[in-house]
Nucleic acid binder design. Structure first.
Lengths: 232, 232
DNA sequence: CTCGCATGTCAACGCCCGTTGGCCTACAGT
DNA sequence: ACTGTAGGCCAACGGGCGTTGACATGCGAG
């Protein structure tokens, strides 16, 4: 009597799915499959008829983002998330399958990487650094994902994917030698994430005390070099 | 009824203690205080009479280091650590008070930062980068502490302390303007920890694939600039 | 030899976790 | 108006957690 939904297996093929749909869609559908009437092409996820429970789903997702960000994966409990959302914990299970599914849904991140090709090459490092500083300080979800990524495999995979899908194309476009783009992207990622780690996660005092302008002044030449300087 | 040890309060003043004792001593003594015979000046921790339980304490500590490193703070359970060490969980409590005490004892880290003043200034960045790469790859405890530091306050404090106590003096010595040493240290820390995060924790593929020599070639100029270049 | 205490064992406590299934309720399609 | 079903609440489950206290044991000092 448990066969309510074949796609809700707790330890299923997580890494396979979510191929190329729109990034900020409603989230993975674990719930109750297509109703028997009007299965209506399940491929394109655009403008499906809104469900009555969409408000609850959104509330859960918002609470999950906050809790994961604040507490990390292990300490962010489903019960606490449900409490924050004003909803029963069993609803979380119904909508997102299990805790990993909830995390995957909450971990949709948009880096909003700016288009660097429109800028003169020597300004690209500074632009990038400033963008990421503002991004990180405007959304503590980013800090949370960093926290989760450090402890949890799914979290690490999420960070890898976000940077590979969103930052890599920009770096590819701005990079002189295509074969070096991967290494350069990794170097840039290491400096960006490293500063984020020190400032927002570990809260190393001298890193926290640096102003935006100081950060840009120091970090921009580094990023610039990783981006365009000749391979050493 | 529990008053066995006043220093073992679970949620006590953690941040206050551990003032200036020897850094790599045997660890915080939670156990049964000094024996009534021969209290023998408790300040210097050198050559105290070995206790019969020293082997157990060491086994626990080794297992704790491994588990914390592999699983992070929350998922590394006292029971699992005790099982690895072949010892009853209650012994862990007796020797280290509680989980936080055990972590504090297991988190004693020695960065073995090399003396840079003996080197020509232009080689210092490369020396530092190579040292940290080898350090990180020779001891996965470092990776573990990074993992723990991202999720747990005590872990973050540990990383802050280790770098402040062990890396800062070296940077102070190698830094042209003393007033800028704090910022420069934070920048260096951000790049070192950032690469460690990408390579050993998040396992970002292009970062993992970089060879030691490539890493040194790319990162050394960055560190060098943070260390000695004029403030931008 | 005797006795005290460090060492170690065992079972349990209370708590919270992720997760499940049963049962109402109210809306939507007919 | 009827009815099926999605939405939601509740109570419980099995289990693992950190932690505790009572009890055995054996070494070492007197």
């Amino acid at each position: 009597m448990v066969e309510r939904d074949p796609s809700a297996t707790p330890s299923g093929p997580r890494s396979a799915g979510r191929s190329g749909g729109p990034a900020a869609a409603v989230g993975p559908e674990v719930d109750a499959g297509p109703p028997p009437v009007a299965a209506e092409a399940p491929d394109v996820g655009v403008h499906r008829r809104p469900r009555r429970s969409d408000a609850s789903r959104a509330a859960i997702l918002a609470a999950a983002r906050d809790r994961f960000a604040a507490d990390g994966y292990e300490r962010a409990t489903i019960r606490a998330i449900a409490r924050d959302a004003g909803i029963d914990p069993s609803m979380v299970m119904r909508y997102y399958g299990n805790k990993e599914g909830l995390f995957a849904a909450a971990a949709e991140i948009d880096l909003r990487v700016p288009d660097l090709t429109a800028l003169p090459p020597e300004e690209r490092g500074a632009r990038l650094v400033r963008h990421f500083i503002e991004l990180w300080e405007g959304d503590e979800t980013l800090t949370g994902m960093l926290r989760v990524g450090a402890t949890n495999d799914a979290g690490a995979e999420c960070i890898r994917r976000v940077f590979a899908e969103q930052a890599r194309p920009m770096i590819d476009a701005a990079c002189p030698v295509p074969a070096e783009a991967a290494a350069r992207a990794a170097l840039i990622e290491s400096q960006i994430l490293g500063m984020a780690l020190c400032r927002y996660v570990l809260r190393v005092p001298p890193a926290v005390d640096l102003s935006h302008d100081e950060l840009v002044a120091w970090l921009a030449p580094t990023i610039q070099r990783y981006l365009t300087a000749e391979r050493p």
